[in-house]
Simulated scan of single mutants.
Amino acid sequence: MSLVIPFPTFDPVAISVGPLAIRWYALAYIAGILLGWIYARWIARQVSLWGARPRPSLRDLDDLVTWVTIGIVVGGRLGFVLVYNPMYYSSHPMEALMLWQGGMAFHGGLLGVIVAVILFSRARGVSAVAVFDILAAVVPFGLLFGRIANFINGELWGRPADVPWAMVFPGAGPEPRHPSQLYQAGLEGIGLLVLVGVAVRLGALRRPGLALGLFGAGYGLARIIGEQFRMPDAQLGFLFGPVTMGMLLSLPMVIVGGLVIVIALRRPAYGAEAPAPAAPEAPH
C-alpha cells in the first residue's frame, strides 16, 4: 500500500478586496511576463552575448510586452476553445470570453505570440528572429508559473499512480495520481530555462535561430514526456493508442525546432570584432 499525500487545499483566489478578486492563475501570468521582461532586458544589454549581431533595443522590448501579452491571451484562449473543447463552446459561445473561468492552450498561445512578434517586427523594423531568440530564453518563466497555477487550481492532474508522492485530487476520483503539473513545471519551466540560458551564455545568440530552435525542440520533447504522466482532457481522451492531443501538437515543434537548430549551426556565427551598439534605455 503506497503512501498517499493529501492534496493541499488552496483558495483559487489569491487576493480579494471587496468585489475585486485576483486568482492565482492571473498572478502566474503576471509573474511570468514580469520576470520574462526583466530577463529579456538583461539579455539585450549584454553586448558580449550578441557580438556584431543586431539586436532589439530596450525600448523595443518594453513595447513588445503589450504585443506579446495580447498574443498569449487571444491565442491561448482561441486554442483552448477551438482545439480542446470546440463542441462545448459552440453551444455556449459567450463562455468563450470568460477568461476568469480558466482554459488556455499553450500551443494556441504560442501561435498568438508568433503572429504578434511578426507584426511587431515589421512595424518596428527589427529582426523577428532576434526577438524570437530572446523570447526563447524567457518564455520558460511563464511555463513554470503557469504549471504551478495548474497545481494550485487542482486541474490537469496526472494519471493513476502508486508512487509515494501520489495525490488524490479533488474532482478526480478516489485514485491517487501523479502530480503531473509539477513534473511539467520542472521539465517545461526549470529545465528549459536552464537549457536555453546555458546555451545563450555559451554563445547561442551569435547564431540566429539557435536559441529559438532549442526552445522549440526542447519544449516539444518536455511536453511529450510530461504527457506520459498527465491525464488527457476528458472531452478528447486518447486520440489513438497512447497518443494525446498534447503529444500530437508537440511533435511538429520537435521536428521544426531540430531543423532550425541544424540551419543555425550550419551558418557562420557573428563575430565579436565589431560589437553592436549598446541597446539604449527607454526614456522616462
Rank of each mutant, 00 (worst) to 15 (best):
P6C: 05
T9G: 01
F10I: 06
P12V: 03
G18R: 09
G18S: 08
P19A: 13
W24I: 10
Y25D: 04
Y25R: 01
A26M: 06
L27D: 08
G32P: 12
L34T: 14
G36T: 08
W37R: 09
A40L: 08
A44T: 11
Q46W: 00
R53S: 01
P54W: 10
P56G: 12
R59A: 09
D62E: 06
V68E: 00
V68D: 00
V68C: 04
I72K: 09
V74G: 08
R77L: 08
L78E: 04
G79C: 11
F80P: 00
V81N: 00
P86W: 11
P86E: 08
M87V: 15
Y88W: 15
Y88D: 02
H92L: 05
A96R: 00
L97W: 03
M98A: 15
L99K: 06
G102Q: 01
G102H: 03
A105R: 07
G108A: 02
G108T: 02
G112I: 02
V113K: 04
I114Q: 01
F120R: 03
F120H: 05
S121I: 05
R122G: 12
A123E: 13
G125I: 07
S127D: 15
V131I: 15
V131H: 03
L135M: 15
A137Y: 10
A137F: 10
V139S: 09
G142Y: 11
G142P: 13
L143N: 02
L144N: 00
F145A: 07
A149C: 09
I152F: 07
L156I: 14
G158V: 11
R159S: 13
P164H: 06
M167T: 05
M167C: 08
F169R: 07
A172Y: 14
G173T: 13
P174I: 14
E175P: 02
P176A: 11
Q181I: 04
L182W: 12
Y183K: 05
Q184T: 10
G186Y: 01
L192H: 12
L192W: 12
V196Y: 13
V200T: 02
V200P: 02
A204K: 06
G209M: 03
L212E: 10
G213F: 06
G216L: 15
G218A: 07
R223D: 12
E227Y: 03
R230E: 11
Q235N: 14
L236I: 15
T244L: 01
T244G: 01
T244D: 04
M245Q: 14
G246L: 06
L249K: 06
S250E: 09
P252A: 12
V256Y: 05
L259Q: 00
I261C: 14
V262G: 00
I263L: 12
A264C: 06
A264Y: 07
R266L: 10
R267S: 11
A269Q: 07
G271N: 00
A272T: 14
A274F: 07
A274I: 03
P275W: 05
P275Q: 07
P275G: 07
A278T: 14
P280L: 03
E281Y: 06
E281K: 03
